[in-house]
Structures are given as structure tokens and as C-alpha cells.
Write a protein that binds this DNA or RNA. Structure first.
Lengths: 217, 217, 217, 217
DNA sequence: CATGAATGAGCCTTCATTCAT
DNA sequence: CATGAATGAAGGCTCATTCAT
């Protein structure tokens, strides 16, 4: 009976779960409320009752997915005295873990990808989140590596270069795994990728720092 | 008769043109044969008559788009005696031009992105093209920069790091332009981005080369 | 307890108020219980709770509207010694006031109009009311004007002719105001219309009286 | 086979027929395209294919109903030398015939009534038709009866009084037949009603003429 | 060779109603 | 006494496809 009541009452929750999965699979327009309701095991009209609209359901689903992502992302602050290089490695590992790790983070990435292809008003949610949760910590690390005189522009360029490498692994998986079947793509390969990206990025940032130094003098 | 055949060819061709643009904009499922036919100025039934199916039209459109892209990508081989650094810069500039440049190349990128999200059998076409047209020249350059002893694995990792930076600019445009409105994103900004990516990548590759050296010894 | 009962009564009453307005505006089928409940500020299920049904609510609303109309229509009996002509003018003015005057009388007219188009069993309520409240006084006046020998048939014909002129102003307002934008249609124009209708009707009744006289002789 | 082809090809026509009947019965909002298509024996999507929209179907149906009405309304011009009184009787008989006569004219009247209760943009069609086909001939007759000095306002008032009596018979049929069951309402009663309305109206117009004369002097 | 006409499936939404609390 | 939650039915519309010509 406890099971029954819990099963009965969280219709809203179940719709959100189903919506996140469905929107991740097919994007906004290609997802159907019917499929979402079927997946959630509720009546078709429930979507309109609880969320007014397919649009509003989408927004609610995005916010929910982001919220879940944030709670999981504890972002354990590194101990004092850790070098910027080590923090960069940690940051990259975190990114890869959240992008490639099993479970719903992948849903969020797919939703982002759909938004990138077909931006709706919801994309602003991601921009805000990206700025606060990803860009801010990255900026601290990269600024330290580039030196205090590095312009915001230069820092942004390097952050993009770092994130791009993480992002590609998640986004182009379909092609990469076809081109290089030998490079495994499961969770166990994350450290290997993190190492390469860190090494490559440290070299890249160092090169940029040198270039800036020459430019100034 | 010449008139008739040219007219016939025109219809098919016009549908293909329209389909490429439409599929690039909206992906496969979100594109409607109606919109394609309206854009092409032909009857709704023409798609089914000439291509049997929406699916078959999609595949034909992809092949056509790829073919056009290949013919345009003459890939003028660089003169002998050019340093690997210069060739890398050229390669990156080419990539950015084809990804960000106005016109149909962007169409192809969008189609690729859609395929990455929702792979169909058509994705193999892109894999083959990526290997032949993009990866092969990149491999030559990076191998030279990494040194002859660098393993294929190491080379692939670096190629990915380079391409990732190009790809992000094209794919995450929607977010980047919202996060950094100051960084222009038109064709004129390509040289600036190419310079940064080249510098960053050269530094990264150098770091990887050093690491390999240490590892070996 | 007094508080509770007044609260209860309030809910039912508020639903009735809202229902009358809504049914007047949109008729039975085009009115939604949702809109009624929203307007009344009560829960959606309240309609079914208090009135079992949309149908039953409709009948209750009609009865309520009629009852309110009756209490308002005190029909102040004219002083003795007033001529039939003056009483006719008064009668016509009354009709126009109740048909065109602002406020709920108009609601009742609209409900009647809807019933005329789509008669339900509720129409009998209106027939009874029309006979008692409208037709009876009119009959007295017209009979006096037509003369005592006038047949009920002749009297009914003339009553219809008089009422028709009043009714048209209320019912065809949408067309008339478009055809003759200059003739104002607010409450202030009632006397002007009443004068014309009275004059026209007196002439018409006189003509009928003459005709009856010729027929008899 | 001739039957089959004629049956097959006039889908548009059959939809229009069904739409006129359905809209006459239920008005615009309460009519469903499904019911119309069922009645017409065609697919649900046929409405959208042939008329784009429920709205556009409505307009097309109105225009068709009006056109049919016009062709039937041959309006045989009266011979010269006919008195205005006789022409008025003819006019009123025509109106009653078209309002009460069997067949589709009733459909048109019901659509008009629905429009009067819930005006849409389509009401302008009726206004135009009313002006041209009904008001213009009536104005000629009434002006002659009222005398050349009668103001347009006075003429309009009398026209309304005449038309109101015709209109009531068609519109309030549901109540009248309940109040006076003895007065038959079929086509055979038209002459009797026409006679009364003519007599009443001639008397009314005469009274107005006298009043105008007094006013002037 | 090509097309106008027609169709069945499916989508999003609204509505009146019911039920458990 | 009253309500939030949930539902089945239905409605307008779009889409890819087929068919007769």
C-alpha cells in the first residue's frame, strides 16, 4: 500500500523522468507528449494538467535535469596548496566524468546538443549554468596558468580550447568509435583521455603565455 | 527532347537543393517533404515519385551534399619546403573556413551534427569522408610534429585535440555567441581563431612529444 | 455555523452568477464549466458537486435568471384614466428598456435567443413567462385598441407585430449597427425608438381595426 | 461509372453541402469538422486540404449558401404601373417565402442567427447582402409610401419595422408555435401572415407619414 | 513524366467528469 | 463540505504517402 500510494501520487515526477529521457533522445520537436505519457504510464492529458503545455513541460524538464546534475556535482573544493596543473587535471576529469559517465548526465548532454542545433528560449538556462558551474572554475585555473596579465579574451580562448577537447569526446562519439574502434569509450577510458587532454592543454596554455609575453615586450 | 530531359533533371536537382537546405536546418524528422517541395517549387508527390521515400531522399541528399563538398575541397597541396607548423595553420584555417564559411559547407556541418545525435546508416558516409579528406592530411602533419616514433594512438589523440577546437566553434556557436557577445563569429574572425588554435595546438603537440620522449627513455 | 452556511451559499450563488453570464455570452455548448468556475473563483469540480452536471447547472441558471428578472419587473400598474395609446408607449418603452438596458436583462435575452436557436426543455420556462408577463398586458392594451369584437387571432397578430419591432432591435443589433452606424444603440436611444415603434404600431393597429370593420360589414 | 465519377470528384462540393447544414444547425464553434466530413462521407483531412482551415471552410460555406440563395431569388421585377402597396405585399411575401419556405433558405437564416449571437468576421458578408438584396428594394417602396420628403432616417425606421415582423416569424418560431399552437406555421400560412404584415405596415407607414407632415408644418 | 486529389495515422490540446481525500 | 488530481473522449490540424489520370 505504501508502494501503491507512492506509485500513485508522483505522477508529476514520473512525467518529468520520462520527459527528460524522451527529450534527450529526440529533442523538443521530435518528442511527443504521447510517448512521454506512455513511458510514464499516465494519461495523455496529465501533461497539460501538470505543465499546461508541451513547452512548459520542456522547460520544467530542463530545470529538473539541471538541478539533478548540480546536486550530483558536489564540486569538492580542492585543498589549498594544490598546483594549478593538478587542479586542471581534476577539472578535466570532472568534465569527462559528467559527460561520459553512465546515467542521466548523458541525457543532459544530449539535450544541450539538441538545443545547440535548434536553439529555443531554453538555451539561456544552459548558458547561465555553463557560466556559473563550468566557466567560472575554469577561468580561475586558466588565469593562473596564463599569468595575471593575460586578457579576458586570451583566457576565454584557452578555456574554449580545453573544453572543446572534452566536448568532442562526448558529442562525436558516434564517429570516433567508428573511426578508432580500438580506443575504448567506456568509463574506464576516462583517466587516459583526461591525461592526454591535460598534457595537451598545459602545453597549449604555455605556448599562449609565451606568445603573450613576446607581444608585450 | 533536350529540353525535356533538362527539365526533368531540373526537378530532381531542385528537390535535392531544397532537401539539403531543409535537412541541414531541421534534421531528418523535423523536416517535412511539404516544405522541401514548396522550397523547390514542385508538387508534393514529386518526392515520392523521384525518390520513393523521405528516407531515400535523405540519403540522396546526403550523398549529393558530400559530393559537392568534395569537389569544392580541392585541397591544393602545399609546396614542398613548407614547414609542418605552416601546414598546420593552413589545415586549421581550411577547417574553419569550411565549417564557419557562409553557404552550403555549413549545411553539411549541420547535417553531420544531426547524424551525430541520431546516427542513421548514412553516418558511414561521413566516417569514410572524414578519414580520407580530413584525417589523412592531419595525420601527416601531426606525425611530423610529434616525431616518427609517435604511436598511431598518440597521433590520433592529438588530431582529435586539434579538430575538437575547430568543431566547437561551429557547433557550439549558439552558446558561445551568447556567452561572449564581444567575440564576433562571422567569416572575418576566422584568421584570429585559426591563429589561436594553431598556437595552442603547437604547444600541446610539443608537450605530448616531450612526454613521449620521457616515457621512452 | 452562520458563517459556514453563508460561505456555502456563496459558492453556489457565485457559480450561478458566473453561469448566467457565461451561458448568456456563449450559449450552452460553447460555455465551459472551466470558464464558469474560474469566473466564480471556485474549484473545477464544484459544478459537478453542486449541480451534478453541466446540464443541471444550465437549468438552474435559467431558473435563477428568470426569477431575478421577474422580481425586477414590478410592472407598476398604470393609473386609471390613462389612454390605451399612452399605455402602449409605456409597454414598448418597458420592453426596450429590458431588452437593451445594460446589465443582466440583456443576459436573459441572449439566453432566450440561444434557446430559440437550439431549444431545450428549458424553453417552456420562457414560454410560460412570456405568456404571463409580456403577452397578458399587451393583450389588454391591443384588445382595447382593436375594439372588443377583434378576434383573439387578430389580437395575437398585432401583438406579434409590436413585439417583433422591439425584439429586432435587441437581436439584430450586430447587423443594424453595421448597416446604420449613425443610429446610436445605447440606452439613450431608447425613447427615440420607442416613439417610432409606438407611432408605427398605432397606425398598424388602426389599419387592422378598419380592415376588421369592413370584413364584418 | 458515370455515377461513380461524379460521386468521386465533387468532394469539395459534398463538403460544402455538409458544412452548410452543420453550421446552420450548430453555428461555427459547435460544429465539428469531423461531423461535417462524416456527413459528407470524406476523410477528415479533406477539409484542410480543400479549405485550409475550419475558418476558411466556414467562409466558403457562407459564400456558397449566399450564392445559392441569390440564384434562387430571381427577384422578378414587377410590371410598370403596379402600386407601391402591391409591391410592398410582394416584397413581404418574398421575404416570408424565403425565410419560412422549405429547403436550404432556412439553413441560411439559421447561420445568420448564429452570426447575430456570436458575430465573426463573416457577418460582413451578410451585411453586404442585406444592404443590396433586401434593403435597397425595400427602401424604394417605403420611400414612395412615405413621400419624397421623408428623411433616410425615417425610411430606415419603417423598413426595420416591416422586416422585424417577417424576421420574428422565422426566428421566434420555437416560442410562437408553443404559445399559439393554433396558428399553423407551414408554407401554407405564408399568405395569411403576409396579408397581416402588409396591412399593419401600410397603416404604420401612413401614420409615420402623417407625423412627418405635422412636424414639417 | 508529373500532378491534383484524397487518405489514415498521429499530434497537441481542451473538456466534462470522477475519485480519493 | 470541498478540492486537487487524474482521466477518456473528442477536436482541429499536419504529415507522408498513394492513386487515378
Amino acid at each position: 500500500m505504501a508502494d501503491d500510494s507512492s506509485q500513485t501520487h508522483d505522477t508529476r515526477e514520473r512525467i518529468l523522468d520520462a520527459a527528460i529521457e524522451e527529450f534527450a533522445l529526440n529533442g523538443f520537436k521530435n518528442s511527443t507528449t504521447r510517448a512521454i505519457c506512455r513511458r510514464a504510464g499516465v494519461n495523455n492529458a496529465a501533461v497539460n494538467y501538470h505543465f499546461r503545455d508541451k513547452q512548459h513541460l520542456y522547460h520544467s524538464a530542463l530545470e529538473e535535469a539541471l538541478a539533478r546534475h548540480m546536486t550530483r556535482w558536489v564540486g569538492e573544493p580542492l585543498h589549498e596548496g594544490v598546483t594549478a596543473e593538478e587542479r586542471l587535471f581534476h577539472f578535466i576529469s570532472d568534465q569527462l566524468t559528467h559527460m561520459l559517465g553512465a546515467g542521466s548526465p548523458d541525457d543532459l548532454m544530449r539535450i544541450v546538443s539538441h538545443e545547440l542545433l535548434d536553439p529555443t528560449s531554453a538555451i539561456d538556462l544552459f548558458v547561465a549554468e555553463a557560466v556559473n558551474v563550468v566557466h567560472a572554475p575554469a577561468r580561475a585555473i586558466v588565469q593562473e596558468l596564463l599569468g595575471p596579465e593575460a586578457s579576458p579574451q586570451a583566457v576565454s580562448d584557452c578555456i574554449r580550447s580545453v573544453l572543446a577537447q572534452c566536448f568532442l569526446l562526448s558529442h562525436a562519439r558516434a564517429i570516433i568509435s567508428r573511426m578508432e574502434p580500438e580506443s575504448a569509450f567506456d568509463e574506464r577510458s576516462i583517466p587516459r583521455h583526461a591525461e592526454h587532454i591535460t598534457r595537451f592543454s598545459l602545453g597549449g596554455i604555455a605556448a599562449c603565455r609565451e606568445s603573450l609575453a613576446h607581444q608585450d615586450s
